[in-house]
Simulated scan of single mutants.
Amino acid sequence: MVVSADLFISTAHKFLCRGRKKKRLPISTCLDVAVQIIAVDLGLKPALLYDSNSASSEQVHQYVNSLFGIGLLTTELQVVSISGSTLVVNSKLMKLHLEELLQSRNLISIDVCPWREEPCITAMDKSTEDMVKDILKFFMDNENKYSTVIGLGEDMCGNWNLCTLFGILLGYPASYWFDQAQSLENCLSMTPLVVNKAWVCSQIGDCRHGTCLYSFSFPEVLWSEIHIFIERWTELLRDKFSQQAVLTELSFSKDTVVLPCVAL
């Protein structure tokens, strides 16, 4: 189904404006948000972290419901609020994703504690395993709840490492980890980071629009240890992509950056 750009733009402008002046999202961002949510609907990623502007979780919920109501989504998606952040979640895919992580223990954590000379790979520790179990139970307890925003209170997620959690929920092949009880800093300053991106195209009206579907990084020094997991993740995404016909031209890019300060 080819959809006009005006439909995506008007829907975003109706539901996702913020501030007294109702500042609107740029046109390209309106299209990107729609394509990202369609990708969640298609099962190409378990969740989207909404960070295009300061729209509330309730506004995002109304926007997602509108896309479903006009037939642009095939399944109902959940909108989840975690510590002030809003995620759009394919609950069925998310449960399968978390169950697979717990069964395989295939989660790659990158320890970036500030006292380390350089980052290193670490196994899933008990606190991370417990966090994954808790968030899985949360999704199972809230199964089929689509009519409202689902919120996690501080009593549940107050001690979680949200950097690690969001990496897991967004389907990244590796997540950064640090001991937040000791420090919120990290050892990534001036460390070469390989930024990996996955791109897709969509036919919107008469134009083909390119959207970044995934963007994540890992320290270049860990390439020899982590590349096999990146390659496996890439092949799984290619396989999922081949099973749908809505988005086209899956491609990957890689760039190395060095930053004086890295916020996680």
Rank of each mutant, 00 (worst) to 15 (best):
V2I: 12
V3D: 06
A5F: 10
S10H: 12
K14A: 04
F15T: 00
C17V: 12
C17F: 06
R18T: 10
R20G: 14
K21R: 12
K23H: 14
R24K: 15
P26R: 05
P26I: 10
I27K: 09
I27W: 08
S28F: 15
C30R: 05
C30W: 03
V35Y: 02
I38M: 00
L44F: 07
K45F: 01
P46M: 03
L49C: 04
L49D: 09
D51V: 04
S52F: 03
N53L: 05
N53D: 04
S54E: 14
S54D: 08
E58Q: 06
E58C: 02
V64C: 02
V64G: 00
N65W: 15
F68G: 01
G69W: 14
G71N: 02
L73P: 00
V79W: 03
V80S: 02
V80N: 04
S81D: 07
S81T: 05
S83A: 10
S85Q: 11
T86L: 07
N90W: 08
N90P: 06
S91P: 04
K92I: 12
K95P: 03
K95I: 09
H97E: 06
E100D: 13
S104C: 10
R105N: 11
S109V: 08
D111V: 10
P114Q: 08
E118R: 08
A123H: 09
M124A: 05
M124I: 10
K126N: 09
T128N: 12
E129F: 06
D130V: 13
L136P: 04
M140P: 02
D141H: 15
N142G: 01
N142H: 08
Y146P: 03
T148D: 10
V149F: 04
I150S: 03
I150D: 09
E154S: 11
D155H: 12
T164L: 11
G167W: 13
I168V: 01
L170A: 04
A174C: 05
D179S: 08
D179H: 14
D179G: 08
A181M: 14
A181E: 15
A181D: 12
Q182G: 04
L184Q: 04
L184F: 15
E185A: 14
N186S: 07
L188Q: 06
T191K: 12
L193A: 04
V195S: 07
N196E: 15
N196A: 13
A198T: 07
W199R: 07
C201F: 13
G205N: 01
D206S: 09
C207F: 15
C207W: 15
T211A: 01
T211Q: 09
S217N: 11
F218I: 03
P219D: 01
E220K: 10
W223L: 15
W223S: 14
S224M: 11
I226K: 02
I226Y: 12
I228N: 14
I228Q: 14
I228V: 13
F229V: 12
R232N: 14
D239N: 09
D239W: 14
F241Q: 00
F241V: 05
S242E: 06
Q244T: 07
Q244K: 10
A245G: 09
A245Q: 07
V246E: 09
L250Q: 06
S251P: 01
D255Q: 11
C261D: 12
L264H: 05
